[in-house]
Computed example of a mutant assay.
Amino acid sequence: MTVRLPRPDGGLREYEPRAEPLALTGGGPLTSRTVFSAAHVVADPYADTTPDGPAAVDWDATLAFRRHLWSHGLGVAEAMDTAQRGMGLDWAGAAELIRRSAAEARGVGGRIACGVGTDQIAGGTLPEIRAAYEEQLAVVEESGAQAILMASRALAAAASGPDDYLDTYGHLLRQASEPVILHWLGPMFDPALDGYWGSADLDAATETFLDVIAAHPDKVDGIKVSLLDARREVELRRRLPQGVRCYTGDDFHYPELIEGDEQGFSHALLGIFDPLGPLAAEAVRTLDTGDTTGFRTLLDPTVELSRHLFQPPTRFYKTGVVFLAWLAGHQDHFAMVGGLQSARSLPHLARAYELADGLGLFPDPELAADRVSSLFAVYGVAR
């Protein structure tokens, strides 16, 4: 069969899908790298909701997708920006997601880490921001999950300089019962986080970030860096205290960062590993054997798709992630909380489909082709 795909110039082009998915061997747990996939949520398409109302989540499909990731040996990074925190999923919904996913993880023996933020408040004083963090930290720790201290929009607005970050994070790290992951999310993912760590100068911000870690190395399992700057991540990685891991959040340069160099490597906590889950796991298992060439042969071709999904405005990458999950058969619809399915153009989605199909990501290529054709037909593309 052929599929008619919209072009950016308004025309159409013919595309012939591949006949078979990529053949993957599967296997046991990953050993040389710790790898988390940030996971999306599946909306309830039949709920009577509004874009600014509480999210309606299809819990069965959402948890089934997490079991899919665990089955391939990946950890799940829960209630992160990939799950539309601050873009459709409020704190009440995130708290429910954390509790349900953590319970599911215990049932299947899956690894899980969950986002801790301040999104139950829109702003506030530093004590109020600290209290909001504490509330969320308690929910995550009570669920039995590892905590990821996420960047806070409220803190970015309220902090007057680096000392406010040092004080806030120092207080939280002293309270944490287990080592946490610190998350530095760049403004390309959330413009409200510009100037995080007290400075728009990334060199100055890096020094403050390292000061936080150096003051509490026993309470920091690792850092997740989402700045889309491979050079900066490598330099930061080399300055971490012994035992503190770097989890790359760079969806543009992840193969080279995970492979590493003679001075070390990055682990991974990536939104792109939501659609790439089985393939990413296969690549890391190849790396586990010491086969760096095989690792790069599998993972390098995926970068074009990742760069496409994460193109500016980067924060709307979630739309492509959910679109591919629908085409892959992980959910029965292309609806998102907050109506975010409308955040990318048809030509953008067409290219995402073509790149993913070329990689063999769809377990049933015929189903994916039929679904993408049905979507485009709604917008007037004759099948």
Rank of each mutant, 00 (worst) to 15 (best):
G107W: 02
T208A: 02
A154K: 02
A215V: 07
L202A: 13
V225G: 00
T125W: 10
A215H: 00
D221S: 11
S101D: 00
L210Q: 09
Q120E: 15
G144T: 09
E178T: 10
G170H: 03
E178C: 05
M188F: 14
A176Q: 07
L172M: 09
I223S: 00
P162Y: 07
G115R: 03
A230T: 01
G170S: 10
A122K: 01
G124Q: 03
E141I: 08
A157S: 11
G117N: 07
A230C: 02
I129V: 12
Y169W: 11
D203R: 11
I112F: 03
Q146N: 05
D167F: 10
V220H: 00
A132P: 03
A157V: 02
A157I: 06
E141V: 09
L228N: 13
Q146G: 12
E207N: 05
D201I: 02
G124C: 12
G222Q: 02
P179Q: 08
L227N: 06
Q175G: 05
T168I: 10
I129H: 11
K224R: 08
D119F: 15
V108T: 11
S226W: 07
R111F: 06
A122S: 13
E134Q: 14
R130T: 14
I148C: 11
L126C: 03
R174C: 04
G117F: 00
A230W: 04
G123W: 07
E207M: 05
A156R: 05
A192T: 07
A157M: 12
Q136T: 05
E207K: 06
E207Y: 00
V140P: 01
I112K: 10
S177K: 15
V116A: 02
A122L: 12
A103W: 13
D163Q: 15
D167R: 14
D229A: 12
A176T: 12
P162E: 15
E135W: 11
A131Y: 05
A145E: 03
G124E: 08
T118P: 01
D201H: 07
L202T: 13
A158I: 12
Y169K: 04
H216N: 11
L173R: 03
E128W: 01
W197D: 13
A131S: 12
L185A: 09
D194E: 14
F189H: 15
T125E: 12
D211R: 14
T208K: 01
A176W: 10
L173S: 05
P187L: 09
Q175I: 10
H216V: 04
A200Y: 05
L149G: 03
A113R: 03
L228F: 11
A204R: 13
A192I: 00
A132Q: 00
P162D: 02
A214M: 01
S101L: 03
E104A: 15
